[in-house]
Simulated assay, not measured.
Amino acid sequence: MSNVLSTREQAAWSLSGDWLLVVVNLWKQFQPEYGRNTPFGSQENNATDLTWLERHRLQNVQYFILLSLLISFSVFYSMGGYFQYFYYIKRREQSEEWKCQPNKFLTKENERHEFIAGSVNMACGATVSGILACFILNGGYSTLYYSASERGWLYFVLSGPIYYLYIDGVSYYLHRTFHNPYLYKKIHKHHHRYHQPTAFSAVAMHPVEFFMYQAVMALPIFTVPIHAGVFLTVLMYFYYYGMIDHSGVKMDAIWPWQPPSTFHDNHHQYFHCNFGFNSLLFDWMFDTLRKEGRVYGEDIFGGRGRSIENDKEK
């Protein structure tokens, strides 16, 4: 399992391009005046002389988007390719040793589908992230702050776990909502065609669902004061674990709050249970953890399965 762990350094970069905010953060640290002297921020310039991009703090946005696309795809393909080559190709015949669902693999059609769907969402997400990073770097409004002492060290320390719980909680509710019979059949089923997910499945979903999750994660940087380092650390962890828990490779929990990779793999295998992503907390609170002795299936909604006795009666 050491080969899996060694990918953590690669995965520390966000999948959808939010890693670009790292650049914004560092630049703001060393160039705090940047953005105040841009054409938009200058009081000496007449707004009518500015281009549309300058008026909206998006000058040079094309370079941000291009860089975001380049790095995001490099990381997505390299990490997904790592799992694909070292496990699904080289060790395919030994899947009992490493696979969450031994001897079960996606069809070639679904492998192509997840790769294409994931790539399309990656392109869209990286583009939006590049635009946001450009906007913030050029002095656009956000609630990110850059000095840990600005709002006090207690606020700085507590904001990390609070932001983590916010994302985990809202993602749980959003994910569970997509398991409503109507939304599941119209939207979320696109993601559940991958009964044996791989790392490429992490962002292979309906675009509406993809952008809902992206919006949940990005909302705090425009609504609640949050240190850029805290925001990025939590966000990168979520992206990192998103690929790990879709990889199909058995991996024990590293941190006390983190479930093993089989937790989410079971979600794809049994459908309507284990709705959480990065912890067991909300599934435990709302009794939606998969249980032995219960029957689960794509047509058994609600998150609690069905008793074996009731299933036999049917």
Rank of each mutant, 00 (worst) to 15 (best):
F282K: 07
Q94G: 02
N37G: 14
S142W: 01
K108D: 09
G302T: 14
Q94V: 09
A204L: 11
W19D: 05
T143V: 03
T127C: 15
V61K: 01
F277M: 02
Y141W: 04
F211I: 07
S42E: 12
E96R: 05
L66P: 03
V22M: 01
N138L: 03
G293H: 02
L106G: 06
Y146C: 00
D265E: 11
D287G: 15
P225T: 14
Y213V: 15
G160H: 08
T107M: 06
Q84H: 14
F286H: 15
C124K: 11
L183D: 06
Y146T: 06
I221G: 12
Q10L: 14
I167D: 07
Y155V: 09
G169H: 09
P161C: 01
Y145V: 02
S261R: 02
H246C: 10
H272R: 06
K99V: 05
I65V: 15
Y172C: 06
V4A: 11
V23E: 06
E111I: 13
H206K: 10
N25P: 01
W98I: 12
L144V: 07
T262V: 10
Y34A: 06
Q43M: 05
C124G: 13
K189H: 04
A215V: 08
S2Q: 07
F40P: 08
E44Q: 13
Y194H: 12
E111G: 07
A215T: 15
G81E: 02
V216F: 03
E150D: 08
F30R: 13
T38Q: 12
G160Q: 09
L70W: 02
E209Q: 14
L106S: 12
W284M: 10
L67V: 13
A228C: 12
V216R: 11
L289F: 00
Y184F: 15
E97L: 13
G140Y: 03
P32R: 11
H191Q: 10
L58C: 08
S129Q: 11
M217H: 07
S142G: 07
I167A: 11
N60C: 03
R151L: 14
L132A: 02
L66C: 10
H246A: 07
G130K: 10
P207A: 00
M205H: 00
P220E: 06
Y182L: 13
L235A: 01
P259A: 09
G160V: 15
L106V: 09
N60T: 09
V75Y: 00
H113W: 04
P225K: 11
W255Q: 13
R92K: 14
Q31D: 07
R294H: 05
N266C: 03
C100I: 09
T262E: 13
G118M: 03
Y87D: 03
S142V: 03
R57G: 00
G125N: 11
I71R: 06
G297C: 13
F263C: 10
E313I: 15
A47K: 15
L289H: 06
F263N: 13
G242V: 02
E96S: 11
F105W: 05
W153G: 07
K90C: 04
E292H: 09
E97Y: 00
V295E: 12
R92M: 04
V230H: 14
S16H: 04
D299H: 14
S14I: 08
G242W: 01
R290I: 15
S279W: 03
K291I: 10
